[in-house]
């Protein structure tokens, strides 16, 4: 008993030591970006070391960036694009994944490979066909046009991802309601979806981050400044402030806040020990 306890203590110390070291190492670039974001331009240029600890903290850089490029509108625009895209992607891909994970039918494997193969080509190559297609159905320069594209382009990855995770669901959990005569859709919606919460949450976080950070499709499909997302705002800002490293850095940090909040909100589903049957020791 004592042995167990002290082992656990060593393990705990090891965990904190190793984790702290790892995180500290991995976040060096971000810490540097943060330092840069709170310095004055004079300090960045004057010391010749862009990475040094700030002498004076200029948090007003953030306010300046926010107002000078009208960040508020960009953030709202991005939310309008990202939220429906993520929702749509999750719904559609979970439907497809359910079919591919639980039904044996002739074309199953071929369709799975098809969903994967759609991801293989670098999307930059599709800029022109996609532009023409959206133009021809009259969705150019609308949010709906961008949202539909995000949903379609993320379907490949999400279907593949969910199909693999759905298969982890214990067979007995699916079989019992079937015997009780539940409909296929009910099993999908009331059994599988709740059980797949951790993977759905992980997927939602990843998708939110990607769509939030997308530049390409917004560039191709939106022209109006009124509709543009944060990434395009920052791209324009880099033209304006290219040599103002502090502005670029603080704009970047503002842009990462929402994906971070989203992660925080969803990460409780990644926490082990909360899953069914876990016994606290």
């Amino acid at each position: 008993m004592f042995n167990e306890k002290s082992k656990r203590r060593v393990l705990k110390a090891g965990f904190y030591l190793l984790s702290t070291a790892l995180v500290a190492f991995w976040l060096i670039p971000l810490v540097l970006a943060f330092f840069t974001s709170v310095k004055s331009m004079d300090e960045i240029m004057g010391t010749g070391a862009m990475w040094a600890f700030p002498k004076s903290w200029r948090f007003d850089n953030y306010a300046k960036v926010w107002s000078s490029i009208g960040m508020g509108r960009y953030v709202l625009n991005t939310i309008f694009i990202t939220v429906p895209s993520v929702l749509g992607t999750l719904v559609l891909s979970s439907l497809a994944a359910f079919a591919l994970a639980f039904y044996g039918f002739k074309l199953n494997r071929m369709i799975l490979v098809m969903f994967i193969a759609g991801m293989l080509i670098p999307f930059q190559m599709l800029m022109i066909p996609v532009f023409r297609f959206t133009d021809s159905i009259g969705l150019m320069n609308t949010r709906i046009g961008v949202i539909l594209f995000h949903i379609a382009f993320q379907l490949g990855f999400c279907t593949f991802f969910l199909r693999n995770f759905f298969r982890q669901v214990p067979f007995s959990l699916v079989e019992a309601p079937r015997i009780d005569g539940a409909s296929d859709f009910r099993i999908y919606w009331q059994i599988i979806m709740p059980l797949a919460k951790p993977s759905l949450a992980a997927l939602a976080v990843l998708e939110f981050t990607w769509i939030w950070n997308d530049l390409l499709w917004s560039l191709v499909l939106l022209q109006s400044d009124r509709l543009k997302p944060v990434t395009l705002g920052l791209a324009n800002m880099q033209g304006e402030f290219i040599s103002y490293y502090n502005m670029t850095a603080s704009g970047s940090i503002i842009a990462m806040i929402l994906p971070l909040v989203f992660f925080l909100a969803f990460q409780r589903y990644f926490v082990s020990g909360m899953t069914v049957g876990a016994v606290k020791g």
Binding site: L30, A33, T209, L215, Q238, M256, F263
Partner: peptide
């Protein structure tokens, strides 16, 4: 959360 931070940045940044 901290370790996830790099993923929240766009490639441009």
């Amino acid at each position: 959360t901290l370790f996830y931070l790099p993923m929240t940045l766009s490639f441009a940044i």
